[in-house]
Design a binder for these strands. Structure first.
Lengths: 205, 205, 205, 205
DNA sequence: AATGAATGAGTTTTCATTCAT
DNA sequence: TATGAATGAAAACTCATTCAT
């Protein structure tokens, strides 16, 4: 009799999609708060108004929820980053484009990936998923190519990738903790560091 | 009879210290392989020739083992890093001293912190413990001081700390995977990046 | 419009009866493959193109499906066996009539009771249902009567019943596994065994 | 302080062996009462004074308990039967030796395999385990040999095996239900049936 | 009447911890 | 102190059944 009840024509469909999202949201929060390893399916369910059995209508296990979150993240971020890099014709464009996209994405998703409040798990939960890693493998590949083409100086591509990844993750975490969450500032900082530094890096023989 | 008694006494002491080390080594390996959160006391005991009850003669819980590992690490690395920074009179010394100490430490401990082989936990287990973090808080503090003293340009100290931490961790991981595990090369790379880049960083008002 | 309506009506009736049979067939197969005890309503539904809720339009529970299968079997076999025995005027007719009817029935139903392929349940699922047992209780009663009337020698009727039941079940299982599935040969074997053996059986005081 | 407490020197050892037996006994009873398929590990534990976790110190699953029971039975009965048959030089010895051993064994174990009281599962729980079946495969092989050697007439060995198995199982069940549980009478009955009947069986070409 | 998602009680299994030896 | 079996609370997962559509 309530309006929300009557209005929806395909209530079942909606509910089903909503439940999936409810579980995913709860999982994101729980993973952030307790860390992936320590989190249990129970914890996820408890963070939900659903019954325990319902979880298993959507996911077979904690791993599977994690995959789903991963895939969502990857689907959102990887194409953006790849596009930036492919469009780049100079080191500046390559570096600044990558960092701008990445920090912008993190800032946008801040709402969705609720900040880890009281982490019981001493290992930090990062958005450091295989898919994201795969995204950085793409970065590595593109850096190799760029170095081969002479766009970049002939430096250690693996270390350079690692450095960019490390800077991106750590600064983004710091950025998220700040009130302003200024993605542009973070991107400018990281970009300047690399543009200034890359030319000084040891050249490989 | 007396001599055998004394020998036993000596062995006892040794055994006791050995058991503690046995547990710590097993815990390091298990944490690396499954992640801290997913690891259980059972897992640690299983990676040990000891009986389950024996564990509790040395540690009260998984957390306590973790503390002990942390403290070991911190005890080994933090004084080294602090000393490097306090000795530094230039940016070059500050940066290169920090990175050289850090990568040297990681290379040394490669044997002890067995490489995470097949990680079931998708979140990477880094030597990213609170104590190590605390070590980097010291770095942050020292950077603030150094900026205040004019040793460093007036950049965003938090972001710079984050960048150094991220580069240190990611490159050290990469380094550990390499056959040669060349700490000097890693340190040179990171140092060059920062020395070249720092002067380009955006200045704060 | 009317014609399509009538056709649908006819199909409905058919569908309804078909659904019942679909469930029964699935249940027979599932019971045979997993054993009655281990089988779940879920398993039966899964072996069906129907939805879970539909099951409950036809049966209240696993037990009720079982009853239905039982009753079907009993309805088919018991009257036949009783008729054979009542018609019998000699031991030969009694014994050979019973075995011939039984093995013929099993051979006929081989198609319906699909052979248990890979039984997860180590206890064999036999067509050894209460109704069939009841059928053999009738055999016991009739044997008692026949012994009382002097048709059979004065042997232990319970043991004789048990022997006939055991031989019937075990040989029928063997027969079903054979390509030819020759009911007559099985009946001849069992009949000869009992006709030859009965006269040698220990007489009761 | 109680005598039963102090008396036992190796209380641990004893308890451990006892617990295993406690679980096996409970399992035998539960399997008999509910059927193997319907029985749950919980049911077995509940039939025991032990804690739920203790079950898993001894068996990994319901299947494993079942295996253990099976193996016990097989270990006890198969050698006896084989010995009887190998010792036999006539049909009489072969048949009567087999039946006497089998019924004697069943009578002995009546205490251990508590009689199925109120079976919820309509499929009867027989000691009809793969190992026991394997025992009858040995019977089949020996019958083939005996027929080949001319000890037995040239009848259908598979059917004869099935008949002996069926008679053995069904009569033993009947026997167990009787107060006297007279193994000798059961053996005499079965032996007479077969000795009288075998010569009448249809000869194979 | 058919559907299939939600429910939550029940089952299986693991685990930290205790304690008798 | 070392041992390792017992414990039972809690986690993982299944299932019969209901009910909105």
């Amino acid at each position: 009799m309530s309006s929300s009840h009557e209005a929806t024509g395909g209530r079942r469909e909606l509910t089903k999609a909503q439940n999936r999202q409810t579980i995913l949201a709860a999982a994101r929060q729980v993973f952030a708060e307790m860390g992936y390893g320590a989190a249990t399916v129970r914890d996820i369910i408890r963070a939900t108004p659903l019954a325990s059995g319902t979880f298993y209508n959507y996911f077979k296990s904690k791993e599977e929820v994690y995959q789903a979150i991963r895939d969502e993240v990857a689907l959102a971020i990887r194409p953006r980053l790849q596009e930036e890099r492919q469009r780049a014709t100079t080191v500046e464009e390559f570096v600044s484009g990558s960092f701008r996209s990445f920090f912008a994405f993190v800032a946008e998703s801040r709402a969705r990936f609720r900040a880890p409040s009281t982490t019981a798990d001493p290992t930090r939960f990062r958005m450091d998923t295989p898919e994201v890693i795969a995204g950085f493998e793409e970065l590595r590949a593109d850096l190799h190519t760029a170095i081969g083409k002479g766009l970049f100086p002939h430096v250690d591509a693996d270390f350079l990738t690692a450095a960019m990844v490390g800077v991106a993750f750590e600064i983004s975490e710091r950025m998220r903790l700040r009130e302003d969450c200024d993605a542009a500032a973070a991107a400018d900082f990281a970009t300047a560091l690399f543009l200034g530094g890359i030319s000084s890096l040891p050249k490989r023989p």
